[in-house]
């Protein structure tokens, strides 16, 4: 991983969730932006191109998480999105796949938060050429097949 600054955006209409996440993430990111709805988040991410990773809730007022990622992709913002999931969000998760979701975090327990965010930051910092993508696909495939074989 490079020594560039790690910048994330946390989007949730529940203020206490945002505060919890800020506390959990502060030790290993440099800057944290926050927003409480998708529209404000979209404006932030357009203004601050240094944002590397976006953590977003799905159900929010004014603009929900799905509309947020859809609009972001239309503006050619290809940052990794990590969505918070909870009960009843299966259809939203499926919709999120259409626009390129990086991962999902179970709200409010946020298991694997650090691992997933660091992975996303790493992904955001990489320059992804098509040959690198192919290489990653082969590596992931070999790893998966190996684990099947040992099973």
């Amino acid at each position: 991983m490079t020594t560039e600054k790690k910048v994330i955006l946390i989007v949730d209409d529940e203020v206490h969730i945002v505060e919890i996440l800020k506390t959990m993430l502060t030790p290993f990111v440099d800057t944290i932006f926050t927003a409480h709805n998708g529209l404000d988040a979209l404006n932030l991410v357009k203004k601050h191109s240094e944002i590397d990773v976006i953590l977003s809730d799905i159900k929010m007022p004014i603009m929900d998480g799905m509309a947020f990622i859809k609009n972001a992709r239309e503006c050619k913002i290809d940052k990794p999105f990590i969505f918070f999931t909870g009960y009843g969000s299966e259809q939203y998760m499926m919709d999120a796949l259409k626009y390129g979701a990086f991962d999902f975090l179970n709200k409010p327990h946020f298991e694997s938060l650090e691992e997933i965010v660091l992975k996303a930051l790493n992904h955001a910092k990489k320059t992804n050429t098509s040959s690198k993508q192919d290489g990653e696909t082969i590596t992931a495939y070999q790893k998966l097949m190996k684990s099947k074989k040992t099973e």
Partner: peptide, 15 residues
């Protein structure tokens, strides 16, 4: 193995 998939393997596996 899915192609033209804008989401990550992890996201797809969870969904």
């Amino acid at each position: 193995v899915t192609f033209n998939n804008p989401s990550s393997s992890e996201a797809s596996q969870k969904v």
